[in-house]
Design a protein around this nucleic acid. Structure first.
Length: 805
RNA sequence: GCCCGGGUGGUGAAAUUGGUAUACACGAGAGACUUAAAAUCUCUUGGGGGAAACUCCGUGCGGGUUCAAGUCCCGCCCCGGGCACCA
């Protein structure tokens, strides 16, 4: 018999599948139930497909085949998230234009995906850097612009010196650039902002509607960071003009603890607070204050936090009035108060806030205990408790105190969020051009749908200078003047690539439509995504942004649903055998190509699914893939054991096991428990081998069950049995429930909860009968000598537990 | 510091959700085939005691609930991830 040779069969079936257009979905077929199965699409890196892609693909491909065989109309598209920095950096190094290197990389990716036998539908080529795609990114931007969901702001932004561009808050990890690890600086750069904060509440509340991993939901909630509290106004007075009713201003503060208001002994403003400039004439030490502000501006956020202890400067000449007790309290500025959160000002309560306590200790400020608890002269007491030193409110507790004091000082209950608006301007070349032009007097205007796609110019040098490369494009400049008139200028920034990936799942539904980003019918039929598979590293970025896009698009009437991804699961990370992340610099990268060459696509895919549960990391240990390869080999070799007559032994034992396996594999795939599904198949194969014979029917059932995991091998064996249709077009096997139940079972006999005997009995044996057998058993009897039986617990079909004293 | 996960053989991991702990696989050891090796096949493989039958211990640690705990409750320890001066 011929040996299992993956090289021979895999190429052959890949070609046949391609030639018959097997993986193309008829999106208009309403006769079957739809299933939208989505992969997070890849960035087509020049290095080609890595193991992470391979694992994700193995997961969705298995599911695609399973659901299709189960009669669903499965949409399983794939595209490329092809704008981005690596291609541009590569261009700077080599002179090869990003559009060229991107095209080459996409070709490589597709070839590698084919060599894994992946059933992707590439219809319409959804490639974000192609004008027929980014035209619609710009269209949506235009709609957002018209509906005031995007605005331009000159504010402090996160600047990465190495990437020479602004990046969004979500793209800063521990004060460093998420992409290159460079420390982020604060820089004032005019930037287009998406109003994601308008949707903060919906982004939190609608998390109740999705079936996502708990940690991902928690991360999103945490990122949005909603906190409820009160906004309270403090009057500001000047020492020079210390006369009645001579209020300079108000300071608004946000606090989650208005119940501690009587303990507020000073006010702290962020260095950027507007009051400082407004009260300049009244502030007597303005020079000193100015120095502090300038110093603070120079620090990065990291440095502000890391710096030893808190710093600050008192604003001499002015003071605030605590509205609870009308006490005059000093005003400080300090960079421990953030300008971007709340109103950029706090009421400091040193007795009950660690930061305020530290500040008060350093500057010798009054500490008044207003919640009874710890020793507030030693450290701040943070918890809830009974109010003291709070006038008529003494004795109140928690919520009631919060409510009453807020009412008393005419405060307002408000919510604040950690989430900031999404800055999307990038001072780089290889991104979607922002479709905005400026009038001669500097007013921004959307270029208009008739001018889309607003093409990315090609006459540009990419060397980063900190200035957007598009500024240097003559073509763009001329284009703008030609269309809009003399003196009009283009926007030179491009968009964050996360914008491109915030709506691609809609384009897949109708990728060849040149009238709309997708037809209303297609969206209605296919959305939302039934199952989304991708890495957990996107919990605060891509997923948040895509959800925002859907909510914003719904608000302006472009679509009519509010959550894009109903069910989401993450695959783990593929690590090397000592558990390190694979990376080029560590030199521990394993290439899928090499694995396909050595073990085949089937073994590579099945191994990734077998070796650990979906969401756990994969330790890539080559010693282990052998086991899966041997298993596939065994399935191949079983051919020689096929018999054409009815065999009593085989029927009884194997048939029952086959039906049990159908049940187990079907249920496990649905629950994404691929590792145990494959082990169930291994058990079946081991048993068939042991019996030394297998009927054609059972063998066919085995390879059908195997086909989602090892499609090439299954297809080859299926054809060798004389079948003409692809195995993918077969119905998924059904099991006979009766056959999955054992008539004879092993029943456990325990004494005081310890296993003492196992008896073979009918599955439905009565308690009385079990007791009789158990009490006769020598193994049991010896434990009962001289003991009193207190009670007997019987669990039908499982065990009998005799409790003795 | 706060919020999530997670600690089970030499290794990757199972365990019907409270009911036989370690399925499946790798590795290791022994044997068979072979002139030999590779491949393949068979057996053994949590620890201790015992010729054996058998028995005691065992799911990070310490308590608890229960006839019964890897699984539930309380208190710790360690590892991974996210957030972090957010008032």
């Amino acid at each position: 018999m011929e040996k299992y040779n993956h090289k021979k069969i895999e190429k052959k079936w890949q070609k046949r599948w391609q030639n018959s257009n097997l993986f193309k979905t008829d999106k208009k077929d309403n006769s079957k139930e739809k299933f939208y199965l989505l992969d997070m699409f890849p960035y087509p890196s020049g290095r080609g497909l890595h193991m992470g892609h391979t694992e994700q693909a193995a997961v969705t491909d298995t599911l695609y085949r399973f659901y299709r065989m189960n009669g669903k109309n499965v949409l399983h598209p794939q595209g490329f998230d092809s704008f981005g920095l690596p291609a541009e950096n590569f261009a700077i190094k080599t002179g090869i234009h990003p559009s060229e290197s991107t095209k080459t990389a996409i070709k490589t990716f597709k070839k590698q995906m084919d060599s894994l036998g992946l059933a992707y539908d590439f219809t319409g080529d959804v490639i974000t850097s192609e004008p027929n795609y980014y035209k619609w990114t710009q269209f949506i931007f235009g709609k957002f612009f018209e509906n005031k969901l995007v605005y331009k702001k000159n504010s402090k932004t996160n600047w990465c010196n190495s990437c020479s561009t602004v990046i969004a808050n979500e793209q800063v990890k521990e004060g460093k650039c998420e992409r290159c690890g460079t420390e982020i600086e604060q820089k004032y750069v005019p930037s287009w902002m998406f109003k994601i904060t308008d949707f903060a509440d919906d982004l939190i509340n609608d998390l109740d509607k999705v079936d996502w991993p708990e940690s991902t939901i928690k991360n999103q909630r945490n990122w949005i960071g909603k906190s409820q509290g009160a906004e309270i106004k403090f009057k500001v007075k000047s020492l020079k003009l210390k006369v009645e009713n001579e209020n300079l201003k108000f300071i608004k503060v946000f606090t989650t603890r208005p119940d501690t208001l009587f303990g507020s002994t000073f006010i702290v403003l962020a260095p950027e607070h507007e009051l400082i400039v407004e009260c300049q004439p009244q502030i007597t030490n303005y020079d000193e204050v100015k120095k502090y502000i300038e110093n603070a501006k120079k620090k990065t956020d990291m440095q502000r936090v890391e710096g030893k202890g808190k710093t600050g400067t008192k604003l001499e000449g002015i003071f605030a009035i605590n509205p609870a007790n009308n006490k005059e309290i000093p005003i400080f500025i300090s960079d421990y108060v953030l300008s971007g959160y709340g109103s950029g000002a706090i009421m400091a309560v040193p007795a009950h806030d660690e930061r305020d306590f530290e500040f008060a200790k350093k500057y010798n400020l009054e500490i008044i205990e207003v919640i009874s608890g710890g020793d507030v002269l030693q450290e701040a007491y943070i918890g809830d408790g009974i109010l003291i030193n709070s006038g008529e409110f003494n004795g109140l507790l928690g919520k009631e105190a919060i409510k009453k004091i807020t009412e008393f000082v005419k405060g307002k209950m408000v919510s604040n969020y950690r989430l900031r608006d999404w800055s999307i301007s990038r001072q780089r070349y290889w991104g979607c051009p922002i479709p905005i032009v400026y009038s001669p007097d500097g007013q921004p205007k959307f270029v208009g749908e008739e001018n889309l796609p607003w093409l990315l110019p090609t006459d540009v040098d990419f060397i980063p200078t900190g200035e957007a490369p598009l500024i240097k494009s003559k073509e763009l400049k001329q284009r703008v003047e030609r269309i809009f008139g003399k003196g009009w200028t283009p926007e030179a920034d491009t968009m964050d690539t996360f914008v491109d990936s915030s709506w691609y799942f809609l384009r897949y539904l109708d990728p060849e439509n040149d009238q709309k980003f997708a037809s209303a019918e297609a969206i209605k039929h296919w959305m939302p995504v039934d199952l989304y598979i991708g890495g957990a590293e996107h919990t605060c970025m891509h997923l948040l942004y895509a959800r925002f896009f859907v909510k914003a698009m719904k608000k302006i009437g472009l679509i009519d649903f509010d959550e894009p991804f109903i069910k989401l699961r993450h695959q783990g990370i593929v690590r090397d055998k000592v558990g390190k992340k694979m990376s080029k610099s560590k030199g521990n990268v394993v290439s899928p190509d090499e694995m396909i060459e050595r073990f085949g696509a089937d073994a590579t895919r099945a191994y990734m699914l077998f070796v650990s549960p979906l969401e756990d990391d994969i330790i890539w240990n080559e010693e282990n893939i052998i086991g899966v390869y041997r298993f596939l080999e065994k399935v191949w070799n079983l051919k020689s054991l096929i018999i054409n007559y009815e065999s009593q032994i085989t029927n009884n034992k194997i048939e029952k096991l086959v039906h049990k396996t159908i049940k187990k594999v079907s249920e496990d795939i649905k629950e994404l428990k691929f590792n145990t599904a494959i082990s169930a198949l291994m058990i079946l194969v081991n048993e068939m081998e042991k019996q030394k014979e297998v009927t054609v029917v059972n063998y066919q059932l085995l390879i059908t069950l195997l086909s989602p995991f090892a499609p090439h091998l299954a297809e080859e064996l299926w054809a060798q049995l004389g079948n003409e249709e692809f195995i993918l077009m077969q119905n998924w096997p059904k099991y006979d429930l009766e056959l999955t139940k054992d008539k004879i079972i092993n029943l456990v006999i325990q004494v005081n909860g310890k296993l003492r005997d196992v008896i073979e009995v009918a599955f439905d044996i009565s308690e009385e009968d079990v007791k009789k057998i158990a009490l006769k058993s020598e193994k049991i009897k010896k434990w009962l000598i001289g003991k009193e039986v207190v009670k007997i617990i019987f669990v039908k079909g499982k065990l009998l537990n005799i409790v003795i004293k």
